[in-house]
Write a protein that binds this DNA or RNA. Structure first.
Lengths: 214, 214
DNA sequence: ATTAATATCCCTGAAAACAGGGAGTAATGA
DNA sequence: TCATTACTCCCTGTTTTCAGGGATATTAAT
């Protein structure tokens, strides 16, 4: 009996590539293809009993991306396997996908052979993650532990945000209706907490944490 | 007579997609495909007289990317047309490609129809740029005039880089074997030139210009 | 109920940054 | 060649930041 697959990718040419690879394999029956996750999510809702073995999906797509789609699929039916095939291998996204039970992840520059291996592995019920992906994942986990992420309070975030926006202590105090001494205390604490030396370090942290844009 | 094409892309699956689209069109003869620009550049050098009509290439590739490849192709033989098919549509890259005579640019999420249209248009001797690409290009030209890009000298870049790395004036002076007064002058000039108020502004600029990482 | 964390404010003294000048030499480009 | 730009250094004075303290009140957690 053939396996039923669904492919989701908004890149037409890439989709064609995948199709040309998979259609030459008789054991795979391509149920349908789609250009974004929304259609598939709807399809699954309408046809909850259809036998679907594997959904292959890109990450970056309009409307409903691969991250969200994977989550929806897994919430609805754990029996449907998911294989992520993506271009950019962002650590946070990989994290999210793994947490939500994605069964595999192969970068788009993978060889045909690796893709097929990923599919067969997943259909056997195992997980398949490319070496690159594993490396990124582990590297991320490791570095996160190293940096023992410092948590800032809301007030501290307010202050560091304004500092990074080039306001002086006095200006920040005026804006927040606080004493200049208070802001100075916060600045001092922030410098200690974040283990930086001065405004430059605070500014970098604010950018890294996306409290501000450039 | 069929047209001779070369396709360069390090994404196997994408390459397959392109091939499956083009091989169904009899008038296109795929001379060869490659996974990065280096091979093609070498090939052109060895076979300077081979009739090649069009090279379709991705931008991001290992070793020799599409930007460099386009430049090499155009320097060697202006008769060879180039069509860029890429994922990320970075304004600066588009700029560079157009300046070096690329004949077309289609994003990877384009439809098969648009791709074929781009190819036929280019083979007729015209240029083909997708609407998205044109928009990005024009938007960029426009905004660049607005912001009258400030150019920093090498020394200024040295100094702002160190400032953003949280070094004090004295430390920077020591590192660059300059007087502390000199560094102060540079800091002052940078603040004026970049129209910022303090270290925070300088740090943001250094990050934006990618002089430093977080 | 006691502790811990958060938020607020204050002080002193030193170091650094900021503002606004000037000035000489070397390199470079028109 | 002449003018501009880049690079270097200096001065004065003010403001801000940084480093080291301490203090009190409220809220949250144990």
């Amino acid at each position: 009996m053939a396996y039923n697959l669904i492919i989701v990718d908004d890149h037409k040419m890439f989709l064609d590539g995948l199709l040309s690879i998979l259609q030459s394999e008789k054991e795979y029956n391509i149920l349908l293809t789609a250009k974004d996750g929304k259609h598939i999510a709807k399809y699954l809702q309408i046809n909850p009993d259809e036998k679907i073995d594997l959904i292959i999906t890109d990450i970056s797509m309009p409307e409903l991306d691969g991250i969200a789609l994977n989550k929806i699929i897994k919430e609805q039916n754990k029996n449907i396997k998911t294989l992520i095939v993506s271009m950019h291998n962002d650590a946070d996204k990989i994290d999210n996908l793994i947490e939500h039970g994605a069964d595999g992840y192969v970068p788009k520059n993978a060889e045909k052979e690796e893709l097929l291996k990923a599919i067969t592995t997943i259909l056997k019920g195992e997980k398949y993650f490319s070496k690159e992906i594993k490396d990124i994942y582990l590297e991320n986990k490791f570095s996160k532990k190293q940096q023992e992420e410092v948590k800032l309070t809301q007030r501290e975030i307010d202050v560091i945000t304004l500092i990074a926006q080039e306001f002086t202590t006095q200006e920040i105090a005026d804006q927040l209706f606080l004493s200049k001494h208070t802001i100075e205390s916060y600045r001092k604490n922030l410098i200690a907490k974040l283990n930086v030396r001065n405004l430059a370090g605070l500014t970098k942290h604010a950018l890294k944490m996306k409290y501000i844009k450039y």
